[in-house]
Write a protein that binds this DNA or RNA. Structure first.
Lengths: 219, 219
DNA sequence: CAGGCCCCTTCAGGCTGCCGTCAGCTTCGC
DNA sequence: GCGAAGCTGACGGCAGCCTGAAGGGGCCTG
């Protein structure tokens, strides 16, 4: 992942650069907005870390210009300004996240990871399970290459099994997972949803353990 | 590369003209907006350098008119106004960059080079999605070859889906994207904007996943 | 400064289809 | 063969969604 760091404080900049490099990402570090403008003009970045107070202008303006030109690269703002109004202005200008100095470098790593996961141009990780291809982030399932539509409840149920492959889940456990714990389910709802899931995903997908519950079938 | 310089200060204008010529580009220099209008009407420029205070009107007005007529030539604003509001107005009006006077001629060269690299004479990359052609940089959409006008919110929403094609986006996620995170949206704003987008771009463009959110439809 | 215009939000009414329920049937264990 | 547990088709209620219309605010114009 290619990251552009725009930060004029040399101490902080170097620390951030080293942290990112330690995470295995590549960094370009500039200290002025005009350098930053050239950089985004000539290179395609996956993420921009932007200081708000720079020697040749406000980072906000740079960010707005970026967005006005249709650039959708995710931007995380780094700034000493901790007032809510600045934060709102930054987010309104199109920032994706915000870090107030002084911040923990580990936290920075976490945010970078989060943004990267959310936006990386790469496709989401796909879990395969027999004839099924499951994209958890996109909430989509394909069966033999054909998309399958799952409803909200069906997803919740399916997710519960995917989270614990092979593990036996009792009906009370599943009800707890599907409903706010105060909801009263006085019927065979789980059975019905299991039935619908089997119809959509294949009858082998869920195995019944009579009297005990269900478990995800072997692929 | 062919550059149009709109500047009424003869000293500065001559200096800029000479600098650009020294960089090996060709320049047309006009001092009034009506002349500028004639020039863009008769010649195709790769870049426009625009002063904001001119004897026969505001440069902003000229720029807006240009964009309204669908002209997407990159524009760099040259101005003595150093207030943030003016810069933002310029960028919102469709400028690609700005330079506050007095500026270094070397910096001007760098910006020109940057813009040139960004556009490299070629039209912007076009994303096609079924009957839609989307120019992210110019923020324009064509449907079956006809231009479609999107408002700010509509574009922001559309962009969110384009950034992650096929991914399910929940309403809270979309609200987060459209509004500062502390804004309270107590109504069905997202639904309304989705509805408008469908009306403008075609009903199949966004698919509803009841209880979960929306996703970009297959082309 | 009034007036117009456009965009955004909110609201209300109508519609869709998901979900819980039930009943009748099948399967399983003993 | 019997009872208990599970399966599944059918159906009505209602949450969630759609959309036309109205009102307010910002921006530009005369």
């Amino acid at each position: 992942m290619r990251i552009l760091l725009i930060e004029d404080d040399t101490t902080l900049g170097a620390a951030v650069r080293d942290q990112i490099a330690a995470d295995g990402q590549s960094v370009d570090w500039v200290t002025r907005l005009d350098e930053a403008g050239d950089a985004v003009g000539s290179t395609s970045y996956d993420l921009i870390l932007l200081d708000l107070m720079l020697p040749d202008g406000r980072g906000i303006t740079f960010l707005k210009g970026l967005r006005t030109r249709g650039n959708v690269t995710p931007v995380i703002i780094l700034t000493a300004l901790d007032q809510v109004s600045d934060r709102i202005e930054g987010l309104n200008a199109g920032a994706d996240d915000y870090l107030v100095k002084p911040f923990d470098l580990a936290e920075l790593s976490a945010r970078i990871g989060s943004v990267a996961r959310r936006y990386s141009g790469n496709p989401n990780p796909i879990v395969t399970h027999g004839p099924l291809e499951i994209d958890l982030a996109a909430r989509s399932v394909h069966r033999d290459g054909k998309p399958v539509q799952l409803t909200a409840r069906e997803w919740a149920l399916f997710e519960a099994f995917l989270a614990r492959p092979g593990q036996l889940l009792s009906k009370p456990q599943l009800e707890e997972k599907l409903y706010a714990f105060d909801a009263e389910v006085e019927s065979n709802t789980i059975e019905v949803h299991v039935s619908r899931l089997r119809k959509k995903l294949g009858s082998a997908i869920l195995e019944t353990e009579r009297g005990l519950g269900y478990r995800l079938g072997r692929p």
